[in-house]
């Protein structure tokens, strides 16, 4: 473990908690893409299958349980409890256009052709593009509540910090995983325009307005 990965995990945890609190406190999931949350739940489910078979550390197990529980709780809030506030008309990204290439790529580019490894690879590739429906929804509605933009900033920062973690591990532990690195860079790059808007606007107290 290193400071970059720890900060990354904390940022990730923060993002998930911000989102849960936003929906629970405002009793509304307006502006939130249910499709992205579904993809995140799929990501954690397929990645953490080794939760019971492969013990890494108490921290690792604890975080996996928290991420799984929080992602399913978020889905329950969006599609069940507060489904009346779910903005279906703006959450229209065709996720099959993500699932197909992710599935093909995970079958072609993986470390080992075993079910567990293919599912892990699938979850890595899926996570890289899982935020697209959310970013698409923000661009469609033209704006996002400030709490939603804080959520996106924390979520985007987490994988950016993981990139620093991979640089650290390459030099200090000669460890690298090209699949995670490639997907992590793509994932972080997708947030770039949002990061720009967040830094230049939201941090100055303005609303996040995307050029419609």
């Amino acid at each position: 473990m290193n400071i970059f990965r720890l900060l990354g995990d904390v940022s990730h945890l923060l993002a998930i908690i911000i989102l849960l609190l936003k929906i629970w406190k405002t009793r509304s999931c307006a502006g939130i893409s249910g499709k992205s949350q579904l993809l995140f739940a799929l990501t954690y489910t397929t990645r953490y299958l080794d939760l019971v078979t492969n013990f890494v550390s108490v921290y690792n197990t604890f975080m996996k349980v928290v991420f799984l529980a929080a992602s399913y709780a978020t889905i329950w809030l969006i599609y069940m409890k507060f489904r009346a506030t779910y903005d279906q008309n703006h959450d229209t990204f065709r996720i099959e256009f993500l699932l197909l290439p992710v599935t093909i790529l995970s079958l072609v580019a993986n470390h080992e052709f075993t079910l567990i490894e293919i599912l892990w690879t699938w979850s890595i590739y899926l996570e890289a593009v899982a935020i697209l429906p959310q970013l698409f929804m923000v661009s469609k509605t033209g704006e996002a509540e400030s709490i939603t933009s804080h959520y996106l900033f924390a979520l985007g920062s987490y994988r950016g910090l993981y990139i620093l973690n991979w640089i650290y591990r390459y030099y200090m532990e000669s460890y690298y995983d090209l699949i995670a690195i490639f997907a992590g860079i793509l994932q972080t790059v997708l947030y770039c325009d949002f990061f720009y808007l967040y830094i230049t606007k939201v941090l100055r107290g303005q609303r996040l307005q995307l050029p419609a």
């Binding site: 995990d9 996996k64 470390h111 892990w120 995983d177 995670a180």
Partner: peptide
């Protein structure tokens, strides 16, 4: 091949 026996990252 990239040696990543077990995935120890989240």
């Amino acid at each position: 091949r990239i040696e990543s026996a077990t995935h120890d990252e989240l």
